[in-house]
Design a protein around this nucleic acid. Structure first.
Lengths: 390, 390
DNA sequence: CATTCAAATGATAACGATACCTCAGCCGGC
DNA sequence: GCCGGCTGAGGTATCGTTATCATTTGAATG
């Protein structure tokens, strides 16, 4: 029983050198004397044909150890000029390129970041994402992207996936503020930056725009036009941006001693039509409408078209978030413009700073980017070309 | 020397059960007797605190080998009902989750796909990307996204990056057709699907839309409206879609015995203004304009607004590619609609089929998706609501 | 009853990089 | 001249999984 049993044991390579007889026995067990026996335990040495060069290939060619190659590549530890040169030559000669996967697995950096956004079909989010990919490319990072569909559960699951993939950092446009499941405990010491909307965890860096201020100024602008009855039409109030813009609107109305009049959860053209029909029925209805975002604007535009209301004569209109062809709608739309790409860039920069620093602070940075009022015709302004305020 | 030497040997789990004394010795040897000795060759056994469970942990708890756990997880090889149950219980108990990175490194699948698109800020591309991420999520794959900026060099570099990251498949909207550097040699046996635009390599699956047919029908529609002098204004002809749409336009014009009149490289509002000013100067200018895509449409709209030309009375207009607010421009735009999300979905499905099949054919599939004519007012139609043909 | 065969499972060796530890020189200070 | 510290470089274990091969068992076959 002894000899075959022995064959089952591993041995440290040093044992082979130091204890010849013992090692020999094992060796014997490993390489059967008779090839005809058919049982060759030793794996065939890797086929030499067309294998991608590894670090040991480079090391062998340069006549150094693998660690030296590793050090030359990472550049973290000093290696003598001459050795570096030799290694570099070997690398070039073999066209060696480090195996990203092995690095990610062994080392603690994957050189990738995660990006979680609600939808990619929304131009605003798409622009954010574009900026993120651009910055990541500059820094030599890959971006793993996914959508949360505005659903906290999905968002959490996707964030978890990202952590499993060991991303070096995570950018996220959180979905519903109050219901968000994201928290430090999930992320460990992986840096996370939330943008467009905040999360409740204060240790997470955040990039926002002046939602309230922007909407407040826009409301004031309509008031300056002489409007007194101004309605706010928005999507779900559980979305941070929608609610914050509403607060800005309400603030402006209150300051002017006017009555706020807001409707939420306007999620389709039909609903917008119903809302507008209602409001405009008889006198005392709004003379101006503010919409929470591009989608709401679209629904309202559709309703307006169907009702045959004239803008801005019968009803003034202003939205939040500029879009590509806002200039060519009928009439050209007045909007609060938020710089999507700026925001994406700012968020990504913040993230890479954190990654570089390697520290996870107790309280994260807060960045708030300015917005602009783009005055076109729908608010009643007479300018030929849009006027940009701020 | 014997005892410590022995301590270096691993033991099969069965040995532990069958030979208590031996196993005990090993256990003893694993915890170094004299920490003060300083030179303990054996690395300190991993700290037990808070380590993520690995497959061996599961195997130990279930009393099986790691391979059995691996097999249960992958499901490729039959494992007995009872063992499966035991392993599953251990997995649940330890909340074990396989290490994605280790898998990607060791196995040959990373459960990720790459997506290379020109820009993410273009709503059309963004919609494609959205569909791709959605399908990938359904299949449990991650998406690594990057932009090529319509530059063949960048595109190649990014594709190379993707290959380095060992994506299981690659989706790409190739930039310039003739100048594309993408080829099988770069991809090896990794499946690749090109969409929206083709590549020259015939072994690559392709998903396109009816660019030529769509534009031809639209041209014919304008001809039916009585137009004889119809101009085509487009971006760079080196972009496949722009050129193909032009060919459809030319075909329709020739069939009707009319003179084609195309201008390319219209890449700014100023250029559009110059072109239109030129063309509309005096009689004999076009009575209708076709644009190659949304961007060109925007430039032309801008020029039209500045020139004060009335659409469709003075000049009819039709574009390629529908967009979110096309209905609310002044007048509502007639366009050829291509289903971006359909295309993204089709391309992704094709890719996953290939990944599942594991074969790399000599000639790839070609899928061509239909387009629709959305007739609004800019072409001269009188319909209240848009009419969709096809 | 011996032999063959298949199914189920285990042991072991990679995969390709980095972390940790060791060691050989070399320097300056005593 | 000896010693301790410093620097550059090498050896090797290890990360967590899967591929390959070996082994065990029981049933089926002749």
């Amino acid at each position: 029983m002894e000899a075959p049993q022995c064959g089952k044991f591993l041995y440290p390579s040093s044992a082979r050198a130091h204890n010849a007889s013992f090692a020999g026995e094992i060796e014997l067990a490993k390489t059967p004397a008779a090839p005809s026996a058919g049982k060759v335990k030793q794996r065939a040495p890797r086929p030499v044909v067309h294998r991608k060069p590894t670090m040991s290939d480079v090391a062998r060619l340069a006549g150094v150890g693998t660690m030296t190659v590793s050090r030359v590549l990472s550049g973290t530890v000093r290696v003598s000029e001459e050795t570096t040169q030799r290694v570099q030559t070997a690398i070039d000669q073999l066209k060696y390129r480090p195996n990203v996967l092995a690095r990610a697995f062994r080392g603690q950096t994957s050189r990738s970041i995660g990006l979680i956004i609600p939808y990619l079909y929304d131009p605003f989010f798409a622009n954010c994402a574009h900026a993120v990919t651009t910055v990541a490319k500059e820094r030599g990072y890959s971006v793993i992207i996914t959508t949360s569909d505005e659903d906290p559960k999905t968002e959490y699951a996707e964030a978890d996936q990202m952590m499993e993939r060991h991303v070096d950092g995570l950018l996220v446009i959180p979905s519903r503020f109050r219901q968000s499941l994201l928290s430090r405990s999930l992320f460990g010491k992986t840096p996370v930056v939330a943008f467009d909307r905040p999360v409740s965890d204060p240790s997470i860096d955040t990039v926002l725009v002046q939602n309230a201020i922007g909407m407040r100024h826009m409301t004031e602008h309509l008031i300056e036009h002489g409007h007194q009855r101004i309605a706010y039409i928005g999507l779900s109030r559980s979305l941070f941006t929608i609610n914050t813009r509403f607060l800005g609107y309400r603030r402006a109305m209150q300051s002017a001693g006017l009555q706020a009049d807001a409707v939420f959860d306007c999620t389709s053209e039909e609903m917008a039509l119903r809302i507008l029909t209602d409001k405009l029925d008889g006198n005392g209805g709004p003379t101006a409408i503010l919409t929470s975002n591009t989608l709401a604007t679209r629904y309202v535009l559709s309703a307006i078209a169907r009702l045959g209301v004239r803008v801005p004569q019968d009803l003034a209109l202003a939205g939040f978030d500029d879009f590509d062809l806002a200039e060519f709608t009928s009439p050209p739309l007045t909007v609060v413009r938020q710089a999507a790409q700026e925001m994406g860039r700012a968020a990504a920069s913040l993230l890479f700073d954190r990654i570089a620093r390697g520290e996870t602070p107790h309280t994260g940075h807060r960045v708030v980017l300015p917005v602009e009022l783009v005055l076109r015709r729908s608010c009643g302004c007479k300018h030929r070309s849009p006027v940009v305020l701020n």
